Structure formats: C-alpha cells, structure tokens
Simulated assay, not measured.
Amino acid sequence: MESAQDSAIKVMNQDFVKLDKLDGTGTNFNRWKDKLMFFPIALKVAYILNLNLPKILAPVEGESEEVTEQRQKREEDEIICRGHILNTLSDSYYDMFQEIRNPREIWAAIEREYTTQKQGTDKFLIKKYFEFKLVDSFSLMDQIHNLQVIVSKLKDYGVEVSESFQVGAIIAKLPPLWNDYQKKLLHTSETLTLSSVLKHLRIEEGPEYFKN
C-alpha cells in the first residue's frame, strides 16, 4: 500500500502544485495561499491547517492500537503539511518560520505577517490609483497599462475595482489633448466595457506613441 510520504512525493512532482515562492512582499500572498491548498487537499490532510484543531494527545498506557495509529497518522500529516508550507517560502521567509514546529502556527504567523504588511499598503495603492494622471507626452496605452497594474496589485490585496469604475476612471483621466474624444465617449449610447474602451482608445491613438 502506498504510504502518505510516497503520495506526497507524487503530488509534489505534478506541475499543478509547483508554486512561486512566497516572497515576503505580500503581493502574491492570495495567489500563493490558493495554490498552496492544492497539495493538502489532494492528500486529504488539509484538516491539519484548521486553527481550531485540538492538540495531539500524549500516549497513555493501555491505549488501543487504533488510537495509536490515529496519533501516528496525525503526526505524519503534520510533518507533511509543515514541510510543504516551508518548501513554498523564499529563503528569507523560510528562515523566519523554520523554527516553528506546528504547521498551524506557521500558517497563522504567515497570515499575521501578511496582514501587517497589508495595512496601509492597500490605502497607498488606492491613493496612487486616484492620483494617477494620464499625460499627453507619452503613449496613452502604455500609461493605461501602468494604471491596470495598480488595479492588479489592489486585487492581490483583496481590493476589487469594478470594471465599470475602471472604465469611468480611464475616461475621466484622459489628458487635455483627448478632451474631444473624452466627450464623445461620455455621450456615446454604447455600453462601454473595459475591453471596448481600450479598443477604442488603441484605434484612436494609432501606431504612433505621441498624439499630435
């Protein structure tokens, strides 16, 4: 019969559980967390990361063979989960958490670290998004791409910017030389999606980097 360790090695060798290392910046935390769970779910050891899971009871004299086997499986599952979490951390993060033996404590400590990093960062990005200005002296589409990068970073921090808001913000941020086209977009009867407004602006800007 295949052991849990053998199953773990098989799962770890599959592409779908190969993760980008959690790098300590917090920007890839949500993506890392979602992908991390593929492994324990596949091995049916995800219960180990339940923060309310009772401690392993110490062995007592006369306990049944079944209880002993349950304890051994629990200890084995904890080792597997701990090793998997540590294996997905960058070197600097690994050094921070490798002394912690309990995988639930590692899990909780990483979430606390992320929460600490997150505080203020999302507000900074929101401020940066609102203050972002499109100017006439650079490619409009390149600038909008940079604006969308901020949206992507906000999403990583759990801040969703709706598509309709993004469309409105892009139109509102169009630089002075685009005033006439801005009015055209504001008064169009077409229901503008993010994809369609970007298509309109790309066509209007043309192949040149600068608007004449």
Results as ranks from 00 to 15, higher is better:
80 I>L: 13
72 Q>A: 14
90 S>D: 05
64 S>Y: 10
72 Q>C: 08
54 P>N: 12
50 N>H: 11
48 I>T: 09
34 D>S: 13
61 E>K: 11
51 L>H: 05
88 T>Q: 06
75 E>I: 15
42 A>K: 02
45 V>R: 08
63 E>K: 05
77 D>R: 03
60 V>L: 03
88 T>D: 01
52 N>Q: 14
48 I>L: 07
41 I>K: 09
67 V>W: 00
101 R>L: 14
57 L>R: 12
28 N>I: 08
76 E>Q: 13
65 E>P: 00
96 M>Y: 08
75 E>W: 04
89 L>M: 09
88 T>Y: 06
69 E>N: 14
88 T>I: 01
93 Y>K: 08
79 I>E: 12
27 T>E: 11
96 M>A: 14
95 D>Q: 14
26 G>H: 00
63 E>P: 03
37 M>E: 10
63 E>A: 07
35 K>V: 00
86 L>V: 03
86 L>E: 07
86 L>W: 05
76 E>T: 11
42 A>R: 01
51 L>C: 08
96 M>I: 14
29 F>E: 02
64 S>V: 10
72 Q>L: 13
37 M>T: 04
76 E>H: 11
39 F>I: 02
93 Y>E: 15
74 R>M: 13
33 K>D: 08
52 N>T: 14
61 E>A: 10
57 L>I: 12
89 L>K: 08
44 K>Y: 01
42 A>Y: 04
56 I>F: 08
29 F>C: 07
52 N>V: 11
85 I>N: 04
69 E>V: 12
81 C>Y: 05
79 I>D: 10
32 W>V: 02
92 S>I: 07
70 Q>Y: 09
62 G>Q: 04
73 K>D: 10
97 F>G: 07
98 Q>P: 00
66 E>A: 13
74 R>V: 02
102 N>D: 15
75 E>Y: 07
27 T>S: 06
41 I>E: 06
55 K>S: 15
46 A>M: 00
73 K>P: 00
96 M>T: 15
82 R>N: 03
83 G>Y: 02
80 I>M: 08
77 D>S: 12
78 E>P: 00
71 R>H: 09
99 E>W: 04
91 D>P: 00
70 Q>L: 15
30 N>H: 09
87 N>M: 07
45 V>S: 10
57 L>P: 01
72 Q>F: 05
66 E>T: 13
71 R>K: 11
78 E>M: 15
39 F>G: 05
66 E>W: 07
47 Y>C: 06
76 E>I: 01
83 G>I: 00
92 S>P: 00
27 T>M: 09
58 A>M: 11
81 C>N: 03
76 E>V: 03
59 P>C: 11
81 C>S: 08
79 I>G: 03
50 N>F: 04
101 R>P: 00
57 L>Y: 01
47 Y>P: 02
37 M>C: 02
94 Y>L: 15
93 Y>R: 11
82 R>L: 06
48 I>W: 05
53 L>H: 10
102 N>M: 03
91 D>S: 11
30 N>Q: 12
85 I>A: 06
84 H>Y: 15
58 A>Y: 12
